[in-house]
Design a binder for these strands. Structure first.
Lengths: 342, 342
DNA sequence: CTGTTAGCGCGTTCAA
DNA sequence: TTGAACGCGCTAACAG
């Protein structure tokens, strides 16, 4: 009972060849009904289970895909992974998780490990735009391993991407704040090394210009996605000759930190100051002062990323389609940016 | 450049045998320095990379471990996975994720898939206590695949577990509420089919008894970990002849729902009513009215679970140690249960 | 319809 | 110190 049984064991028992057993098990048509039934029955009795590893070695397909994210325990990423897992699992694939901790070394290390493990594809959200990563990413593409970026992408030939329209998200948020009557809108942005933050900022800027507002450099502060940084940014902004009366933040955590700091300073949100975040982290709607935020639909993004992978892997020829899917974000308007009487 | 290169390719190039190449690559001592250098150099030049799949088939060790959780996007579980990944990754293992959606079918399906994929171990948080699952779990143990439960366990011979002391968490929370002067403490519990909720409830009950309080069945309501259920439970409790003045909830979400409902009803928290949650979900500390909650230290739990697995896999003999690790929870006292003047 | 052979890529005997 | 041969478990090609 403790032994692993193979097709040879069942072949021996039935005095037939392993090939026949294999055929019977795989529903091959060219086999007699009698022997098929015999094999199936024996397999059942002997508790036979296919060794996917051998199959993988033989076929060159491991039925595993690697997913690389900065941190698995950020709600956005765990949501994406959820979607990927749901979609891929029902298609017979398993998902291998790697965390890059936003570092390039870990990222490269993970890619190499996944490649050595013979994954059938790699779905990732890159840490930042660097050329060092290019080498290995190109290697991946050359090897013929489908590579797909989600959310945080990088332009690379032969690589499909699934993102949301960050520009649109930035534009919508800013337009909303303008509609609410805000006159001086600041922007707390993320790293300049990531496209998503550049795009959100562009959307912010364009919305300002389209409405006849001035774009002021000093209103844009770069932050990391941490609560403290939101508080610090508010401090900086209020030292300006003309402090803003609204913030569009590229991060919900930064938005939260900003709101907490404003409250500490006695500035009333949303009456005197409006705030919009990004990411629609669950906590934004739990707060007594719920925070307006842009939904990135993480689970959907994960599912679509998985689908793009499946399409690619199932595409007939050697020609790899380079697909660029762009989802439309949705701004959830909540209390933090809704003035009572405007 | 597109071909996969094997040890045979480099053997051919050097006019030596593949066995020698293998030895050189693996740092086998019985090999001359000259050939070793030759091999290493050639491997470097030819961009050789080991196919872990072949190694896995040969050795019987895939260096993959499976992790099964109800949902990956709940902060507790994503935290645990983070810990597992961190610990195992640095030990050369990769983590395969499966979601059970709290259903037994999916759980069984996942275990079978993982077993077929020849994982070296399975770390899981079970959906509930059922005998149907027993069969397959026992099979896993019999096959010699290390199985470890974290958080939601089930007593099974040969299976190690890593949990927190849920009884203690329940006791502490209740004691705290008593210390705050609450007289009628209700308990919103989770499914009776899960040990963790039974234990938390036992802790709650014992704390009541130890303090000379009466344990009332009608003060205990079973809920699912959803916001709405917290609100519903509050409605029920306030229909009782003697409504409670405090709630110890086994879920942060339920606690949140309760608080929102209380507020809606005009009941002041914490002045008139105290609430303690469980899980220390990040949002509990973000709220303006921060929620007291019991920390389960998910990342640490994940790391320890991984360590127990590593110990087990590295234990010399065939004797599998059955280890029971119990972590101590920590109650974070916040505004939702701190009366201003008591 | 079925059996034989071969090979996926690797490490590990057993000889030499 | 090195090479030849084998096996991990499976499927595909080629015979018959």
């Amino acid at each position: 009972m403790k032994e692993k049984i193979t097709i040879y064991d069942i072949a021996a028992k039935l005095n037939i060849s392993a090939a026949t057993v294999s055929r019977a098990l795989n529903g091959n048509t060219k086999i007699s009904d009698t022997t098929r039934k015999l094999v199936l029955e024996a397999a059942e009795n002997m508790n036979y289970e296919q060794n996917k590893l051998a199959l993988a070695l033989k076929s060159g397909k491991s039925k595993n895909v690697g997913v690389i994210v900065p941190h698995i325990d950020r709600s956005f990423f765990s949501g994406v992974i959820r979607g990927i897992e749901e979609e891929l699992n029902s298609n017979g694939y398993r998902v291998i998780i790697c965390q890059s901790y936003d570092t390039e070394e870990k990222e490269i290390e993970s890619i190499n490990a996944l490649l050595n493990a013979q994954v059938d594809g790699i779905l990732m959200s890159i840490s930042n735009l660097t050329s060092d990563l290019d080498y290995i990413l190109n290697k991946t593409v050359r090897k013929g391993v489908p590579l797909i970026f989600f959310d945080r992408k990088q332009d690379l030939k032969g690589v499909s991407t699934v993102t949301i329209n960050d520009y649109e998200g930035g534009y919508q948020s800013t337009q909303h704040l303008i509609n609410e009557g805000c006159k001086n809108i600041a922007h707390l942005r993320g790293s300049k090394r990531l496209e998503i933050y550049n795009d959100r900022c562009k959307g912010y800027k364009q919305a300002l210009l389209d409405n006849g507002f001035e774009f002021k450099e000093e209103y844009v502060i770069e932050t990391k996605s941490k609560i403290d940084e939101g508080a610090e940014a508010v401090q900086k902004l209020f030292k300006l000759p003309t402090p803003p009366d609204a913030i569009f933040s590229s991060s919900d955590f930064v938005a939260l930190g900003a709101i907490k700091e404003l409250k500490k300073m006695g500035v009333k949100v949303p009456e005197e100051f409006s705030v919009v975040g990004f990411g629609n982290d669950p906590f934004t709607q739990f707060m007594e002062l719920s925070i307006s935020s842009v939904d990135q639909f993480p689970t959907e993004m994960g599912k679509i990323t998985a689908k793009v992978f499946l399409e690619q892997i199932n595409s007939p020829g050697e020609i790899k389609i380079e697909k660029k899917v762009v989802l439309t974000p949705k701004l959830w308007i909540r209390k933090s940016s809704t003035k009572k009487d405007v």
